[in-house]
Write a protein that binds this DNA or RNA. Structure first.
Lengths: 141, 141
DNA sequence: ATACATGCAAATGGTTTGCAATACG
DNA sequence: CGTATTGCAAACCATTTGCATGTAT
């Protein structure tokens, strides 16, 4: 993915948005993070550095980052929400341990192809695939 | 799947639960429904018939039905929650139209096998697969 | 100057919980 | 009888919104 700051700035300028210093700051922190994060953790992290950072602003910025295509929202089976940095050219499944909560990634082009073929046959145009596998990882079972 | 009433009753008797008339009633209505339902719709449906039925009771019963393995909880990409009747011997993916909201089912044993093989290789024990494909259906595109 | 952006506090909405009354086994 | 269950209202919690202030263009 090209520079997220550039992408975000371009997106905002096309949508009556402003790439303010607060958004810059959030974007920077976010793309320094590990690939998956939960909002509350992220807010805590931000507020540790910038005490006045408001929840609302973070939520609003995340929404814009979603619209800009820089983030993907993931909702797990039991309703927990987290986000990950978008990498559309490399879409992958998530393998999630129910015990320790660790998230593994499964990269398998054949899997996606199989799904796409199936959908093509029924004339369904695929936008997005969300694949989550739950169980117990090596360490926990 | 064998008779849900029997399954539920057996589950409850093994878990200090009581198969009350309220639970019977909820179970009956639920298994008369189309395969996928949202809680709020279901509650409205129930309350139309039984005015005093409380939200809390429905939520509590659904939780027990989940534990009993009679229901599966599904959370869509944008956080909407719905449930479907379990049919573990026939696990399937969901194909969801972003326009009209219709849900199609994809039955493909090879897909599941592929996932299982992958997980086996990393020593991950699979409990559950959640596969949701989003896009536009035949009618809407 | 004219919006968009921000922080705060209050509102929202789906779900859960405490409590007192009721009903199962 | 003792314990799970129910209905009601209140609590919860993540997210959203209204509003007054601040800031970019």
């Amino acid at each position: 993915m090209s520079d997220p700051h550039k992408v975000f700035e371009t997106y905002l300028s096309k949508n009556e948005g402003r790439y303010t210093s607060t958004k810059k700051l959030i974007t920077t922190e976010l793309f320094n993070l590990s690939e998956h994060f939960e909002v509350e953790n992220f807010i805590d992290h931000l507020r540790a550095k910038y005490k006045t950072m408001s929840r609302a602003t973070v939520y609003r910025t995340i929404k814009q980052l979603l619209d800009a295509g820089l983030l993907q929202k993931i909702t797990t089976r039991d309703g927990k929400v987290f986000y990950e940095q978008s990498r559309p050219q490399n879409e992958h499944a998530h393998i999630i341990c129910n015990i320790c909560g660790k998230i593994f990634e499964m990269h398998d082009k054949e899997l996606n192809d199989k799904i796409d073929n199936y959908c093509e046959n029924m004339n369904f145009k695929v936008d997005y695939r969300s694949i989550h596998i739950y169980g117990q990882c090596n360490n926990c079972s």
